[in-house]
Design a protein around this nucleic acid. Sequence first.
DNA 1: CAGTATAGTGCATAAAAACGCAAATATCAA
DNA 2: TTGATATTTGCGTTTTTATGCACTATACTG
Lengths: 251, 251
Amino acid sequence: MLKEERQQNILAILRREGKVVASELSDVLKTSEDTVRRDLNEMAATGLLQRVHGGALPQAPTAISYQSRDLESNAAKAAIAAACIGLLRQNQVIVIDSGTTALRLARELPMDFRATVVTNSVPVLDTLSSHPGVEVIGIGGRLFKEARCMVGAQAVNELRAVHADVCILGLNGIHPDVGLCVLEHESMLVKRAMIHGARQVVAVAASDKLGTVAPFVFGQLTSLTHLVTDAGASEQELMPYRTAGIIVLSG
Amino acid sequence: MLKEERQQNILAILRREGKVVASELSDVLKTSEDTVRRDLNEMAATGLLQRVHGGALPQAPTAISYQSRDLESNAAKAAIAAACIGLLRQNQVIVIDSGTTALRLARELPMDFRATVVTNSVPVLDTLSSHPGVEVIGIGGRLFKEARCMVGAQAVNELRAVHADVCILGLNGIHPDVGLCVLEHESMLVKRAMIHGARQVVAVAASDKLGTVAPFVFGQLTSLTHLVTDAGASEQELMPYRTAGIIVLSG
DNA sequence: CAGTATAGTGCATAAAAACGCAAATATCAA
DNA sequence: TTGATATTTGCGTTTTTATGCACTATACTG
């Protein structure tokens, strides 16, 4: 087995299992623990994973990552959420994506807001449990633990059956030429299904996401009707989106 | 289990429960109290949590509702959950119902437990997000807010497609003659779908539920293979269930 | 203030990592 | 092909790390 091939395998296992143990790897890959350790160290040096005693973990620790992401850039996210809520009308059917910005929107939703919300995000489901006026539809599927949301074929199918008035969409990167992108393949498919059939598609993105690219592109810029970002975005940065016919709000 | 992994788990539990107790952690994480203490001290040194006598608290005050924590600090439910976990085997497909007793079971599940869990309960989804070895399938449907679970035709359909090894079932009442009952019509349909096709059906019920009746009957006593209750149940109370061929555990 | 639960300490042990070196394998040029 | 060179891999040894145990000290509780 080639070195690169082996390292690819290690990464695949790491993604699947959430951790790798050096001794187990040497067993599965039929090689010595030395080689495995060398591989792990090499990959850790290039930032592909986090080396720990006994094996390795994903570079973004799963449990802690959600928590810390949840807390960071609070003011910016609050502004985005507020601007976004301004776009919503009573009694609409609203799809809410996973991601901390969309979650923030759900949390800021007035308690007397009346609407139907469709979501695959566990924390959004949790939050909206206490909104009496909101009819909530949970999307089923495999739980993607890092993002706390449902993904997979089942989720995509259920979402395709929904034609929402508004879709609140989170993303990892947005670029005028490349389009809308995310970090994981699974998310790509889910977000495509969310966009499909929605009357308005509102992307929520902190200003640092503007102009950045992530591996998986799930749609063109023209899929969007609105882009909501924070005050950190310059007019120059926003211009390409406006000229593409997107309504841009920056709070 | 890797050290860093364990520490991430501790953080996840801390975030979820609002506190951690050293002795409980050593139990759930299957390690010595020494190791737990070392972990807690290490994390406290890096400012990830606040060390206190007996366990640790979050660095920042948490927004967790006291209500939800209170129903967890119930010794009877802990005993039921522990007995229930004893029935589970690695790599089974397990359906977990909504309800606080079933939720308790999910929380007490060892971190290294490997299985596939199917659930319609939002807090169970939340809890199992931090169990790396558990593949979780969320059931979609309308959110029933009071119980924080998915119900309705969609949920019933998805559940009917599952043939589980074990089904952990909560209920509002169980009576030797009347059968298994719940308070809401929606729950009745969902629970019927859960039972359908399950190899083992384990009812979890606090002893005060025994012999009581609720409006909607979703199954006969013979649908059950196991009944797990707490030590508050008398032998006389349990006898009818035993004679019906049900394996009765009372912790 | 006594009794119990929790913490800290030193030590033994086992697992894992690092290191140096030699063998195996691949790469490349003539 | 052949041989020179670089890379990769495996093995023995040493060093480090992680963990559990026994024991003592300290903190909580009634």
